[in-house]
Nucleic acid binder design. Structure first.
Lengths: 189, 189
DNA sequence: GTCTATACGCAGATAGAC
DNA sequence: GTCTATCTGCGTATAGAC
């Protein structure tokens, strides 16, 4: 039972996820989501009581997705160094969206912070997932915990910076170049 | 004549500048600005016709400010290398605001992009001012135009990344550490 | 120039019919 | 479960008195 409701619910979350990314959370209205999903605004409230509830579901969905592909990388990519390169490649393969809408994680964190939204800390945990995974990889490469943490933070710094500047200048070539620099840095440490 | 109106106008722009930074553009209402300035909403429209007009004035003010202190650096700091270090130091000295609200330029560009605001390109020109100045410094250091441009873009990447991650983790120590890394990088190239 | 009053639309949210 | 109708508040913007 509840399969149809679950389906609609999922559709709402997926649509909201997309719209929050492209238009921002605050700028996306219930009507936007409802019409994109193809249901009435009234029906909407059967599935979610408030806009913040949808946001929580979207963040949760993204977290699950992040955990999934990080696990998949752990299982399918043999070495830590290759996995770190895969992290950088992810940015490159996402370049078309980045130049248009920035980083889906960085931009939402920045927005929720300014809105003083209750789910801000929840959102930053998306970054924490990446940070902890990156630290793990550097530890596997033989670095001490402190150094691994600093390296991980540097990786986050560069990928977020790439997203902001790549978007501001709408420049995929820049993204590829800067990503390559980061890979070069990875080789040297 | 018009001095009083000019004063009020400036006060509005200064206040809006601050509120747009701390709360975001979309999330800041006319009432917010009016009450912060200490005038009625009605009076407001004597000075600015639309919210976008205030935004344009805020961006213009910021641009003027950026040009001013870049010029000042050019005139008071003897070497290009020292000026590049000053650019990094600026981020460090701004750390308290960054951990709370992010980069005043990066966050507004990101937001205006998602809002499809007409002044988005105008806002990105704030970054262009820094980019062109940075390129100049690297050229003065003896690098070719292409290389200077890539170095400049890398500086932008790091400072923007520092802002996003510094804000997300509310971590001034991280900002100082990563800024030092960037200075180390400057020494090596 | 600055105010109060007010128009207008849209957003979030609810009630109740089907 | 899904709909239409509706409430309420807020935000932008205007009109007009002082």
């Amino acid at each position: 039972m509840n399969t149809k409701a679950e389906t609609i619910r999922n559709k709402i979350v997926t649509t909201a996820d997309d719209l929050f990314y492209r238009q921002g959370f605050n700028h996306t209205s219930f009507s936007d989501i409802a019409s994109a999903v193809g249901i009435s605004r009234g029906n909407f409230y059967y599935h979610f009581k408030t806009k913040d509830d949808i946001l929580a579901a979207v963040i949760e969905k993204r977290k699950v997705g992040i955990k999934q592909f990080l696990n998949e990388w752990d299982e399918t990519i043999p070495s830590a160094k290759q996995r770190l390169n895969q992290y950088v490649d992810m940015v490159v393969s996402y370049q078309d969206n980045i130049v248009k809408y920035g980083c889906p994680i960085g931009t939402v964190c920045s927005e929720l912070n300014k809105l003083k939204n209750i789910h801000y800390n929840n959102a930053t945990e998306m970054i924490t997932l990446f940070r902890d995974w990156l630290i793990e990889q550097f530890v596997l490469l033989g670095h001490g915990k402190e150094k691994a943490k600093h390296y991980a933070m540097h990786m986050l710094t560069c990928t977020q910076g790439i997203s902001v500047i790549g978007q501001a200048f709408t420049d995929p070539a820049y993204i590829r170049r800067e990503a390559q620099s980061l890979k070069d840095w990875l080789e040297k440490i």
